[in-house]
Write a protein that binds this DNA or RNA. Structure first.
Lengths: 228, 228
DNA sequence: ACAAAAGTGTTGTTCCTACACCCATGA
DNA sequence: TCATGGGTGTAGGAACAACACTTTTGT
């Protein structure tokens, strides 16, 4: 059943850039394409937008269909619309990105995609379409954003140590941070709730913390800055 | 001549949020719509994307067609795609924004639009579609961005005084800034080139400055921050 | 002389940085 | 006892915030 319009229209897709953090490494969720074009190549999860669904909903739906990953907060990244970016014709893609705790989000490829996997961010395979460029934009955004918004917490387990948090910042920013100063800074924000200590570690057990969403919202609503 | 596709496609448009600065006030460029829907209502300049043009190009083209304003740098803001935001059916709109020096960009309504005008940002008329929401997003972005990027300079004449620059920051941020501290901070960045003095003003004449693009690029390439 | 905006001095406080040091645990 | 990461003290300097003061113009 064909659809007809008076003027030509580009096709509209969504793509998802999903970052995960695991064993001190930043990872990216990719699918292996099951169809042409770029059959068998790795690509960002994504697909066509349905007529009656929100863009964000479309992104979440495609993500779950292709990777099994669900229940996450995504945020719009950028819209890529250069003619020629897709061999099938004019395709405009709205990209969304998210950060997840890798352990909480097991992948299981489904339907459209023949496979789904986490890749280390610095060892990505060649990607389909202009997806390499898209990933680059996402990483830049991540770097810029983590310095003044607490998005990092979504990458960690619910309970985490200050050490883990610092490691995460170091991986994303790509440079070592001073332990003492990182601690003082992050603690002074007052957005961490202290819990019990670790156990069974071969060194002095660290305190575990959880992120205090409420305190954070108070902070931002007062317009107070946050900078690491 | 109709165009037919196997699956339905949303229409794709671009919208432009153009900020100007004039007499200590922040203004926004709007057009009066010449056709239904929302005939005679005020709206953001914008329109449908052609099949062979870049999104950014489409935004610039529509802007010039509808307002006569051209030769500016635009930046992608956000893509709005909620079903129901346009009474004609599913329309997804990629929004772009820009800052211009009002004096350098005379408006002259043309073709599609029956009229184009600058409005004070705090006295906007009711807007068509979801354009009020779009403007709100743009203002938030502007506020967030001006604190660490020198986008403000594009709103001012080529030669400007530190007082004017401060006024601009105050208007955008919506709060008064301390004269002494603003000066020290902005001067220490070293991105202003001092020129001659003002003349014919009823007070001590201020030095004029121009923005030093090169110095700014040096600054950012060293990864140095910039914060007001 | 006065208003109005430009521009400077200064001071107390807070924040940043860099380093050195001690602590608790499992192996 | 050693390695490992957790956690604290502190000192010097840079940056911030607030306020008072002087300067130069046109009217």
């Amino acid at each position: 059943m064909p659809y007809t319009y008076e003027y030509p229209r580009p096709a509209l897709t969504v793509d998802c850039i999903i970052f995960g953090f695991d064993n001190d490494v930043l990872k990216l969720l990719l699918i292996e394409r099951g169809h042409d074009p770029f059959k068998d190549a790795w690509a960002l999860p994504g697909g066509f937008v349905d007529m009656d669904e929100d863009l964000e909903t479309a992104a979440l739906r495609e993500l779950e269909e292709e990777t099994g990953v669900k229940d996450l907060f995504i945020e719009q990244l950028f819209t890529f619309g250069q003619p020629g970016r897709d061999p099938r014709g004019r395709v405009v893609s709205v990209a969304y990105y998210a950060l997840v705790n890798l352990k909480d989000h097991p992948v299981q490829a489904a339907s459209d995609a023949s496979n789904a996997e986490w890749f280390k961010i610095d060892k990505l395979p060649p990607l389909a379409f202009d997806h390499e460029a898209i990933v680059k934009v996402a990483i830049e955004r991540l770097k810029g954003k983590i310095r003044y918004q607490p998005i990092g917490f979504e990458l960690l387990p619910k309970k985490f140590t200050v050490g883990q948090l610092q490691k995460l910042y170091e991986v994303i920013l790509g440079k070592p941070l001073n332990k003492r100063n990182f601690r003082t800074k992050i603690m002074k924000l007052g957005i961490l709730r202290q819990l019990e200590r670790q156990s069974d570690v071969a060194h002095r057990p660290a305190y575990l913390y959880e992120f205090d969403q409420e305190k954070y919202e108070e902070l931002t609503q007062q317009g107070k800055g946050f900078e690491i």
